[in-house]
Structures are given as structure tokens and as C-alpha cells.
Design a binder for these strands. Structure first.
Lengths: 351, 351
DNA sequence: GAGTGTGACTAGAGCGCTTCAGTACGTCCA
DNA sequence: TGGACGTACTGAAGCGCTCTAGTCACACTC
């Protein structure tokens, strides 16, 4: 009951009566043969059920796999609960897809990154790392394979292309705006400083030793304005629920903060809800600022003041970079994208 | 300035002074050689910077690519705005990742599915299709390549493994509960019935000819209880914003519906907001029911009555099915998962 | 001491494709 | 008429690996 072997280039070549090279050319270099012959080859291929050159064999021969690996710091559901990540990833996907490249996803499982075994077996010839801890084993595994790397929101490793935004400056911008409105009692909400699942107030020593550049820069941008004594609450992930719980804790301190600076919009949405939970109002009683400017920020209740970073553009740039590295290009200088403060109704001077 | 060629199995074999097969065995069948030799091989490999067998070459030789393709109906950001999809995908990813398989993502671009070119070049040896329109070109492309297919939430194509839930029954369940509470004036909100981006009220003829099985079944489940005359609003995507706009429209009709049946939780969240927008209260003035029971449903304000489907389980099952097909297994009977109604505070008898 | 294992390693034939260096046959121009 | 050039196609050498069918040496058995 052996099912018929799948047709190969040879099968088609034999059927048409030409050499294998010619059939290959029919698919890859149509200008190398006469239109008539090409036509005949395609027809025969179709009638034999040949669906084109096998991608794996092609990859082996060309030494290009036409795939871009994407390494995530967390599991998929956690990752995609984060609208910012989704938008970045979408920008990346459209870029590489336009060049007939696939995206190979490597979800985080092990110490803030994909498992090294997963990395070792992935068929990709360039890898994009998104917000992994600086010491993720997955990064070492990519290195070991000698694949080029593009990092997003992460310190550049040696010989690595990078796209990033000015997280420190952006955070400073938001904090400064609030300061100028007259706020003096702040609370800061950050997402993971370490990949250990911690939720709660952050000790100064933990603040100083973070493994994620993004949280570090945003946090320090806030504190640069509000002062080192500002209470900081850490959420293990950037989720609305965790943000809600954290904000509730921060707002229960006394004296109560008049402004909450959140390291992401998602956290800020939670904070908005927490303020309501406590029977208070935004911005009358508490101002709330976010970071990212995801689409939902504009439609939040009230519309959220936040730091805009060009998310889709970030993904697109990473895609371009990846494509360039694929072509043998050199990493070059990091691409740095501008941020700006978007003032909406969730912030106002304190009463 | 030609950079040194990457080491291969042969390089290592030469350096150690054994045959290539032995080095291969050191990686793949440790029991085939003495521990001492294996140790020596691994050391030499490490010192040469050899990171293990090349995945592409291995795939060509074994004819397994250790990758599972995943075809999406929409772009990534749209897809992942949908918590249900994220959870399913996460379940799938954990399953296949546990078996050292990667996930190759193919985002929708063309008529409700990935582009056929993308499919043709993807290095995967089984493909999971999630909620694509029944006639997506991508499906045909997978067929042409002769790859096994697992479909989630879609009618089984010939010779295809399938996992699904009882969408019709679940929708009926929710509608019936509301009916029994005394509701008689309903509004129904559905996500895309066709891949044409339509937002607005749905004509009976459009209701009858939908390309997505899921929306069809849920819609008909609702209408089976509420009657064919019930106003139906279609949102192009399952998003909170679109749901909010749709619900606002539905609630502006007169007489105003006392209950809104939503084909997804995301849509229902929008509806919750729309009710507030209009100065009304849930459930006192309007009852709202969702579908999926994503985690946020429990924390919504008020907590959402919804139809629970085992999302993670759905992904896991799809993963198992994919793995089985990879092993040459036959598709077999569709896996059907149970749904149940979760009653929370967003529904109550009408005033 | 012939027969029978058995554990450790190897030779070499693929896997299905790309690509480079040809060959064969016109065509064109002087 | 002969050489230069172009176009259309072919032969064969890889790409880096796996895996089957060995070989070889060294016990062990009766």
C-alpha cells in the first residue's frame, strides 16, 4: 500500500524530456529558456501534481532558508496579550513576507527565552530577538550557530544589528510633564525587571540590577525626574490584570500618589481600572500615564496620556535589517526611532 | 577577506579521525558509540565551533522538517488582538515545542489566508489552519504540496484532521438562557461572515451565505432561539472597538433590544462599553453575553456571561493531531470539544 | 577450533535541488 | 567565409546530512 512517491524535479524533467537544470530554470530563471518550453514544463508539472521545488532541498542547495526566526521572551499567550508586541511583530511579518520569507516563531520557555534545543533546530538564517533578558541562553545558542541577529529593545550584543527607541528619554518626557503640572507624589509601575515572576514593590537593589534593558531605561527615566525614593511596583508581565492589582497597592499607600507612571499602556489600563475600583477619578484624583501608545490608548476611558513609539515602524525596520543581514550586509549602527509625548485626558494638575 | 567556512560534520570527523557517520551518531544515537569517543567528538566539535548538525541538511536527509506550519486568516496584529487565538496558539506551540518542533507562522494576506507563494516555500511538514474561509487559496496550495492538514474551527476538507467545538450548541445555550429569563428583544453581534471587511447590519441573504463556519454556526445558534427577524450586526474583525460601534448602533434601534448576544468576548467587551456610552447599565437595562470565555471575561465590569470553550485544550489537541499526522497517522474522526455556559453578572431578567 | 555473537565503527548511496562551466546551433557582420 | 556573439539547453559537482548494510576485532560457547 505504498503511496506513490512525490514527483521531483527529475520526474518532471523526464516526462518533458529535458534536463533537470532546465526544469529548475523554469521555476527560478524564466529568462533562461524559451517561453514555449517553459509553458510545456509547467503544464507537465501540473499534470503530474508537482507543486514546485521542494523548499528544504532548495534551501540546502542555496544555503538560504527564506525564513526569519523570531525569539520571544514569553509564551505566546502572554506575548500576544501585549498589543505593542503584536504590532511590532505584524510590522516585521509584513516586511519579510513581502520578500517571500516565513516567520519561524520560537516562544519563550526557558529563562526568558526559547530553549536552546529549539534554536538549534530552527530553520532560519537570521534571528530577531525581541526583548529577551540580556543573558538568555537562546542568544548564546544563536551565536553558536553563527546566525546573524537583530535585536529589538535590547542592548546590542557584539556584532548585532539593533533597533530601539529612546526609552529613557521617553519616560523622562512623561514624568517631566507631570512634574511641571505640579505633581510631587508619584507611583511607578514597571513590568518585569527580572525573569523570575516577581510581583510587588521593588527594592532599590533590585531596581539597580535589571536584566531587561527596556524596563531599566523606562524605570530610570521616570525616577530621574521623580527621585529615587519613588515607590516602584513590578508586574511579572505587562498585563492589565497585574497592572490593576499593582496600582491598587500603590494607591493604598499614604500619602496617596497623585500620579501613576506606567511602563506600558497595558499596565496603565489596569491602573485606570484600579482608580475606579477605589472610587476615585482620573484625572481629578489621580493622573495616569502610559507608554507605547497602542491603539486602545486613544479609546481608553479617559483617553490615555502616553509616550508614543512607532511600533509598526519598529517591526518594519527590524524586518529590513534582517533582510539586509540575510544579503550578507553588516550590522552597522543601531537604528534609533524617535518617541514623543501624547497628552490626552488621563493627566491633569493635582487638586 | 573570506570568512572561514562554517565547520560541518566532515570537519569534525576529520579532526577527530573518525568517519562522518560516527559524528552523526554522536549527536543522534549516542548508544551507537562508546561514551569516551562521543565525549571526544563533542569536545572537538565545541573547539571547532560546530553547533550541531545543520537543520536544513538534516531535514533533507530525513525528510522531516521538524516544523509545524500555522496559517492565519488575518495579519498578525489583528490576529493577536484576539485573546482566544493567542491562547489556542499557545496551546499548540507548547505541544509541538515539547517535541522539538518549531512553529512556522503564515499570516493572512490574501483573501483570508496566507499567500500561496508563502505556503509553497514554507518548510513545514504539516500545516494547521485556523479559522480560514472555506475557499482560501492557501488551503489549495497546501493541498498541492501534499502536506497533511489540521483544521481548527473549520469544516473538514477531504482527508483532513479537525478539532472543533460545538459552536451552534454553545450559542443556542446562551440564547436559550436569556430567553428563559424573559428576554424577547435581542440584538446579535457577529464577526466576519465574509472576508470583505464589511461592518454593518447583515441582510438575510448575507446571513445565509457565510464563508466562515464558526461565525455561521454561532450566528445560527443564536437565531435558532431568537428568531430569524433578529437584527444582526457584523464586525469585520473580532475587536473591542468594532464591537463598541456595532453595539451602539444596535442599541439605538427602537424598540431597543434588552439583550445583546455577541459571537465573541472581545465583541462583548465593546458592547459593555457601548452600553455605558449610552448612559445605560448592564444588566439592569441591557444584558450582554459573549462567547469564548477568555480570561478577561471574568474580570470585566461587570463580569461577563459567556460560553466557555476549552481554548488551550483546542490548541493542544491540534498540536497532538499535527504530531500524529507527522508520524504518518491518518486523520481519523474530528475531535469535538465540549462547551458550557458560564453565567456571570452581565445577564439578568429584563426589567 | 569452528561457530556464533556482539559492540564499535565505516563506506557510500542517497535526499531534491541549484549552479557553473560547457556544448550546440544559429545569426550577424565584415 | 569565417569568426564573434547570443540564445537555449545540458552535465555534473556539490549543498551537509542520515542511514543501511556492511566490516572488523574480540569475546564466548560447546
Amino acid at each position: 500500500m505504498d503511496r506513490p512517491r512525490k514527483p521531483t524535479l527529475d520526474t518532471v524533467a523526464g516526462a518533458v524530456g529535458v534536463s533537470r537544470a532546465t526544469v529548475s530554470n523554469a521555476y527560478n530563471r524564466p529568462d533562461q529558456l524559451s517561453a514555449a518550453l517553459r509553458e510545456r514544463i509547467m503544464e507537465t508539472a501540473a499534470s503530474l501534481g508537482y507543486a514546485g521545488p521542494d523548499p528544504v532541498a532548495r534551501s540546502l542547495a542555496t544555503r538560504h532558508s527564506a525564513a526569519v526566526g523570531f525569539m520571544l521572551g514569553q509564551g505566546l499567550s502572554a506575548s500576544f496579550a501585549d498589543a505593542a508586541l503584536s504590532i511590532v511583530l505584524d510590522g516585521l511579518a509584513s516586511t519579510v513576507d513581502g520578500h517571500d520569507h516565513c516567520l519561524v516563531l520560537m516562544p519563550g520557555r526557558d529563562k526568558g527565552g526559547p530553549r536552546p534545543e529549539t534554536v538549534a533546530r530552527a530553520q532560519a538564517d537570521v534571528v530577531v530577538a525581541y526583548s529577551l533578558p540580556d543573558d538568555a541562553p537562546a542568544l548564546a545558542a544563536v551565536r553558536a550557530r553563527g546566525l546573524p541577529i537583530v535585536v529589538i529593545d535590547q542592548p546590542a550584543l557584539l556584532d548585532t544589528a539593533r533597533v530601539e527607541v529612546d526609552d529613557f528619554g521617553g519616560a523622562r518626557l512623561a514624568a517631566a510633564a507631570l512634574w511641571e503640572m505640579g505633581h510631587r507624589r508619584f507611583g511607578v509601575m514597571t513590568f518585569a525587571l527580572h525573569a523570575d515572576g516577581h510581583n510587588g514593590l521593588v527594592s532599590p537593589v533590585r531596581q539597580a540590577s535589571t536584566s531587561f534593558r527596556v524596563s531599566r531605561d523606562r524605570l530610570h527615566g521616570y525616577l530621574d525626574v521623580t527621585g529615587a525614593g519613588t515607590p516602584v511596583w513590578e508586574c511579572a508581565r505587562s498585563s492589565r490584570e497585574l497592572g490593576r492589582a499593582g496600582a491598587r497597592a500603590l494607591l493604598s499607600e499614604s500619602p496617596r500618589p497623585t500620579a501613576l507612571l506606567c511602563a506600558s499602556d497595558e499596565l496603565a489600563f489596569g491602573a485606570l481600572q484600579a482608580v475606579r475600583d477605589l472610587g476615585l477619578r482620573v484625572p481629578a484624583d489621580v493622573s495616569v500615564a502610559g507608554f507605547d501608545d497602542v491603539p486602545a490608548a486613544e479609546h481608553a476611558d479617559p483617553p490615555l496620556t502616553t509616550v508614543r513609539q512607532p511600533l509598526a515602524e519598529k517591526g518594519r525596520q527590524a524586518g529590513e535589517l534582517a533582510l539586509r543581514l540575510l544579503d550578507g550586509g553588516r550590522p552597522g549602527e543601531p537604528t534609533r526611532l524617535a518617541v514623543s509625548l501624547v497628552s490626552r485626558d488621563s493627566t491633569a494638575p493635582p487638586k
